[in-house]
Design a protein around this nucleic acid. Structure first.
Lengths: 338, 338
DNA sequence: TGCTGGCACTCACCTGCGCAGAGTGCCAGA
DNA sequence: TCTGGCACTCTGCGCAGGTGAGTGCCAGCA
């Protein structure tokens, strides 16, 4: 068990290293922080912290830098999320309220997050699985060709072309449209399958093939679209670390282009809690020297998607966490209003 | 006027520099290329080429590297677009044909282009202005709230919420929907304004306000959406040059995040010709050490949008131009089929 | 007139050296 | 348990000298 002072030393090391980007020695530490002890004592504490794996030295006769384990302890026990100042909150809110549609909300969010944290921002589009249906529209494009348009409560629109097994009359189409909407509007996507299960039976025999095709396309859309889209921004911020890690930037850029990797990175969408993954805690190898701060956001009480930032392990955790949390909160509000 | 041999020397310099990434001297040139003259002669030619501004030396006692002007001459007069090999063509076609919808086509195109050229790829979504209307749908979301859905012949879907000045009955809605579609389906977006101009007059006085609102929203959508969307990919390829230009990568990444800059970069969408902008020919400052190869693509005979790549001025122009041209051609085919 | 070989010159780059400075570990003493 | 002192270890930097690639210029030859 580490003594209170040693934890204090670790906190000081993290803060100084994050601020100066240089390894920090015992003397500099006592000068900048009021630890109440001499450099020699700090040196002893440092030796213990190194023994325990919280800090390391790049080479002999250099200062110490925190390890992933050190950052972990810092985040878990030593740091408080730094709340945004009232002017900052207002600025965030104003900026997001200027959005005209869902695409714009997401685009603004990612830009805002990148700017606030000066890191790479990732925002996931609101998930369809947790959304409800606002409207389903069926359009006749040709005698045996329909277009299905699905509109969600978060303003998202998905469309699919459907080739019908047989021509489908305008009255049947209106009937199907009305029945579909009356059954599933306002319902959750996850509930849709059982709600439409017996729908074909309500139609004439000749139309049942088409109705079934439409329904299976609809269900397919729901499933496929759980493969979420996301937007990233602020990649230029990566270059701020290029002199430290000239060779790590490439795998990071590569990882950021892989949607699948990013989705895993943000974590399970159903979990609304803020989460910090540090260095090797990230499964993806290219991101071993980065940390990811992610949190769920949603229009109601629960999370519909996640957003977060990717930055170097040596990041300002309290500030980043504060910014991420604040942005998530306001995006949630905006979505709830619209 | 430069003699034939001097042009040959310039071509050799460009080729060697692009291949080796190192400044090229007179001796190495005569060894690698069959110029039929001695290094001394080449030196004289180089002196002339430098005088004329086609090449430069980074410092005395170093080899020569091409200037922007040198690349320009190379592209205009010395290089032939290198066609893709039949297996490559087939691979491109197969890959693009696997796409399931427009988003997927664009996503695959950008990935393909980045991979083929090993540079940053940019693909613009098919433009709405040159598209035609496939269908317009109006949905009643609430007594005085409508949703407008616009579907294009390229499969693109845009939606807008409309708050009406007065409640709008279901029969009026059906009427408006039918009239709108009969007038503008199959017509070009640019023709829409005059086609719907007199539409409010066909409605009862109490509905005219809503009809006007719907129409102005529709026209707004057409205008706003000429502000095109685009997708980029392959940014990780930028790091291949990071050792040459550690400090130029940042402005490039910043520029790539600005849609407006990118759109200007690709050039006028109506121009289908392949275009190469070299170094300082790019208006944007951050891209002064990059070249952009862009070309229009389209489903019919004319271009609906552009695509291209961004890379270092020191790029393989013939190969890059060949890849860009081939991809544009096949994307056009795919769009025409769907 | 144009090409060639020779020659002196100029830098960038690498290497080895010494020195300062920061930081450490250890130890004896309070 | 903390502190001051001391010897030690590295990194980084500036400096000097040598190497090599590449150049410009010039005289000679076809």
């Amino acid at each position: 068990m580490l003594s209170e002072r040693r934890l204090e030393v670790l906190r000081a090391i993290v803060q100084d290293y994050v601020g100066t980007e240089e390894s920090v020695g015992s003397k500099a530490l006592t000068e900048r922080h009021n630890l109440g002890v001499s450099p020699a004592t700090v040196r002893n504490d440092m030796a213990v912290l190194e023994e325990e794996g919280y800090i390391a030295q790049p080479h002999t006769s250099a200062g110490r830098i925190p390890t992933d384990k050190g950052y972990r302890l810092f985040v878990d026990r030593l740091a408080a999320v730094k709340p945004m100042s009232p002017p900052e909150r207002r600025a965030i809110q104003n900026y997001l309220e200027g959005a005209v549609d869902l695409d714009d909300v997401v685009a603004r969010t990612v830009r805002l997050l990148a700017q606030l944290t000066r890191q790479v921002a990732v925002v996931q589009y609101p998930s369809l699985t947790r959304s409800t249906v606002r409207h389903v529209e069926l359009l006749s494009m040709a005698p045996a060709r329909l277009m299905l348009v699905l509109i969600t409560d978060t303003g998202r629109v998905e469309q699919r072309m459907i080739d019908c097994p047989a021509p489908f009359g305008e009255t049947s189409l209106a009937d199907l449209r009305a029945r579909l909407n009356s059954r599933i509007v306002g319902r959750r996507f996850t509930d849709v399958p059982q709600l439409v299960q017996d729908l074909p039976e309500a139609f004439e025999l000749e139309d049942r093939g088409t109705v079934s095709t439409v329904l299976s396309t609809l269900l397919e859309t729901l499933v496929e679209e759980t493969e979420e889209r996301l937007i990233i921004g602020g990649t230029a911020n990566l270059t701020r670390f290029v002199h430290d890690f000239p060779l790590t930037i490439r795998p990071v850029l590569e990882a950021l282009e892989e949607q699948v990797v990013l989705l895993k990175l943000l974590g399970e969408a159903k979990d609304p809690a803020m989460r910090v993954r540090i260095g090797h805690e990230n499964a993806h190898e290219g991101l071993n020297s980065t940390s990811v701060v992610s949190v769920g956001y949603g229009s109601g009480g629960e999370a519909v998607a996640k957003l977060g930032v990717v930055g170097p392990t040596r990041m300002d955790y309290p500030g980043t966490m504060g910014a991420v949390r604040a942005v998530a909160r306001y995006v949630g509000q905006i979505l709830a209003e619209s």
